[in-house]
Design a protein around this nucleic acid. Structure first.
Length: 422
RNA sequence: GGAGAGGUGCCGGAGUGGUCGAACGGGCUCGCCUGGAAAGCGAGUGUGUCGUGAAAACGGCACCGAGGGUUCGAAUCCCUCCCUCUCCGCCA
């Protein structure tokens, strides 16, 4: 969430950002400020009432100590009114606070000035492209290759769990493992600290990174225990430092984590979900950064460059999109998507999303650091995929297939696969 | 899952209804001392929020695992939940 003081001082900027992000209207901004005004008034009133009641209680204590029971009794009798008043004020304050926070949660992060204004994915800017997308007629989509070789078993996945939960068999299981190891090793070599995270999180964590209340429906739940299956490692890893005050020397902190990810993906259909294009369970290596506010812009660029370097090493053509305001999401200030070329489908597939959240997540999480002046300040958080597996697998199968039906293993994966073709 | 013991500041550890934001010790910071250091001595050392202020700062309120409750008054009493430790059970 945004800082209410920031909203107060930048009312128009926040409103404009909201409109640019495609919200129906920006009324929440005015409403939240009005509500906050009321809230602060009530806080002052309540604090005054409490101060008075504290004073009386202290006095009673003193009188009791001195054995002046009668005088104490007299004072006690006087406290009834202020007690009621305090109770009333507390109740209205808690109502006001809830209303204010609910509004505050509806206000998205303000897009960075460098983000193109636009409505939908059609307004995203192609930031760069790498490699030559191949497009020969004979190339099969990955689901045909996988079916032919019995590498991916969607039907048995449906039987055992449901649609979107495939089995990977033989060389394909090995390829998954190879990619995970490759991605983790690269990240660690770059300077990320490898971390193994829980696959379920509690409600506070889901709120901390913004899945709640915005994107609750995307997650699988474990109601009996109040857990959420993680939709991305971003959730547990970013919450790792929730409610902490870091030292400035700690920053920047880089983490990488491999986890499965679970997403309900309600409402998906057709070619969008064919094969490995969109699954309910998939594997991903995630990158998370905690940085000083002054450097988050630069950190986003190096994050993107790092993610791009993985596709370059795999020798997979890709393009990088700078997402426009309307397509970038609620919590981000700026976001790049990396899309790998799928020659069997003749389309681009998103394999990484690199985002800067500014202090938006940190504020929800109360994640701070002690700055140059010794004061606490919100850190900036960023994350990106490095990378998500299924579409990379799809692109590898389609890009590296030979006319003879085999698939050549990319050079960098051979040490992990033990063979040079499958 | 069952039985028991606990959760207090950066750490250890007091505090079982009143003047406790919290003794004492350690750590850390600053100062004195020193050629320099150690030891010693002195001072300081939480977070959030509201208000005043340009700021430094000052004042109020809240916070002793979380949330409720009792009371004029709660770290201290009661209830619920979470977590940690010990033993038993179960288990990869």
């Amino acid at each position: 969430m945004l800082d209410i003081n920031f909203i107060r001082e930048n009312r128009e900027l926040v409103k404009q950002g909201m409109v640019n992000k495609g919200e129906k209207d920006s009324a929440a901004v005015d409403l939240v400020l009005a509500k906050d005004e009321e809230w602060r008034k009530t806080v002052t009133e309540l604090d005054l009432a409490r101060a008075e009641s504290n004073k009386k209680a202290k006095m009673i204590g003193q009188l009791m100590g001195q054995g002046k029971k009668e005088e104490a009794q007299k004072l006690i009798r006087e406290t009834g009114d202020s007690k009621d008043k305090i109770k009333q004020l507390e109740e209205s304050l808690s109502v006001l606070q809830n209303e204010r926070d609910e509004l505050l949660y509806q206000i998205p992060n303000v897009p960075d000035a460098s983000v193109p204004v636009g409505r939908s994915n059609e307004d995203n800017v192609v930031y760069s492209t790498w490699g030559e997308p191949v497009s020969e007629e004979w190339r099969l989509p990955h689901w045909d290759i996988a079916a032919e070789k019995k590498w991916i078993d969607f039907d048995r996945g449906s039987k055992v769990t449901g649609a979107g939960f495939p089995f990977y068999v033989g060389p394909m299981a090995r390829l998954q493992r190879a990619l995970i190891n490759f991605f983790l090793n690269e990240a660690v070599e770059y300077g990320y600290t490898e971390i193994q995270a829980p696959y379920f999180v509690n409600e506070d964590s889901a709120r901390g990174t913004g899945q709640i209340p915005d994107k609750e429906d995307m997650m699988y739940t474990v109601p009996r225990d109040g857990f959420f299956a993680i939709p991305t490692a971003e959730v547990p890893v970013t919450n790792f430092h929730r409610d902490e005050i870091l030292s400035m020397d700690d920053l920047p902190i880089y983490y990488t984590a491999y986890t499965p990810c679970w997403r309900r993906e309600a409402g998906s259909y057709g070619k969008e979900v064919r094969g490995l294009n969109r699954l309910h369970q998939f594997d991903k290596v995630e990158l998370v950064k905690f940085v000083h506010p002054d450097s988050s812009d630069q950190e986003l660029e190096t994050l993107r460059e790092y993610a791009e370097s993985l596709l370059q090493k795999l020798n997979l053509p890709y393009r990088t999109l700078l997402m426009c305001t309307g397509d970038m999401g609620f919590t981000q200030t700026k976001k790049y998507d990396l899309e790998v070329w799928s020659p069997g489908q003749q389309r681009w597939l998103e394999v990484s999303s690199c985002s800067n959240f500014g202090s938006f997540q940190a504020r929800r999480m109360q994640l701070r650091f002690r700055n140059e002046k010794g004061k606490t300040e919100m850190v900036h958080t960023l994350n990106g995929s490095g990378l998500a597996l299924p579409r990379v697998v799809a692109s590898i199968l389609e890009t590296y297939q030979t006319g003879a039906g085999d698939v050549v293993i990319p050079d960098v994966l051979r040490p992990y696969m033990g063979v040079d073709r499958i």
